[in-house]
């Protein structure tokens, strides 16, 4: 589904590149973990996959088409759903409106369907009362569930998550990981999670370690 061809990225000088000549392939219906030390460049790699930044070298292909041809804005809108460590929800909206807004912006096939959005939230343990409150009144774990529900409502086949369990306790972490697995296996999506938690990495189908500017398959 997603392929990187000789992908490289550096900030100021090529000699100090974070990574170069990365050739990886990510498939639908599979979850991937990317692990590595802080500052190794795993989040930057994720931002390239998410279309939030442009690579310095090489290219990313989605189903054989370079994403820069699709256009990064279109790519993000139609093909990628992103989950952040700090949830990044619209803080002036309810969980339900957060989902409806995301569905409208991404032109999801379910856009405007309140019942569908409510069903997604219910699946992730958000009650009917909670889904009408302001999203800031929910706990961190609940907010992350809303963020995951948002990815489920969109039609994107690629879900990327940057440290999605970084702010969560053990119980919520377990729950969130289960949901990502469901998204990959039940919705046949490609899930890529950047994490520094070994438990999260182990739960994924495959795990890549970014170390010394190179990616290595761990499992």
């Amino acid at each position: 589904m997603l392929k990187t061809n000789d992908l490289g990225y550096w900030y100021d000088r090529q000699e100090n590149s974070l990574f170069e000549h990365v050739n990886l392939e990510f498939k639908s219906g599979t979850s991937y973990a990317i692990v590595g030390q802080s500052g190794s460049g795993k989040t930057t790699f994720l931002s390239l996959l998410a279309g939030l930044d442009k690579p310095r070298a090489g290219q990313i292909e989605l189903n054989g088409e370079p994403i820069n041809k699709i256009g990064l804005t279109n790519y993000r809108k139609s093909h990628v759903a992103i989950v952040f460590q700090s949830y990044n929800l619209f803080n002036y909206m309810s969980p339900l409106n957060n989902l409806l807004t995301a569905m409208a912006v991404t032109e999801s096939s379910h856009r405007g369907d309140k019942d569908y959005a409510a069903e997604m939230l219910r699946k992730l343990g958000i009650t009917d009362e909670q889904m009408k409150k302001n999203v800031q009144k929910l706990s961190g774990g609940q907010q992350q569930r809303v963020a995951i529900a948002r990815t489920m409502c969109c039609d994107a086949k690629l879900v990327v998550a940057d440290e999605p369990t970084g702010n969560l306790d053990e119980e919520n972490t377990k729950y969130v990981i289960e949901q990502f697995q469901k998204i990959a296996h039940e919705q046949n999506k490609c899930v890529i999670i950047v994490t520094h938690e070994s438990d999260v990495a182990k739960a994924c189908d495959h795990s890549y370690r970014l170390s010394k500017h190179e990616f290595a398959l761990e499992s």
């Binding site: 939030l52 993000r76 139609s78 929800l89 619209f90 803080n91 995301a102 912006v105 991404t106």
Partner: peptide
């Protein structure tokens, strides 16, 4: 800025 960032990440023009 975060709100704008989220909208951009969702692919909003």
């Amino acid at each position: 800025r975060y709100e704008i960032g989220v909208l951009l990440s969702l692919g909003e023009a």
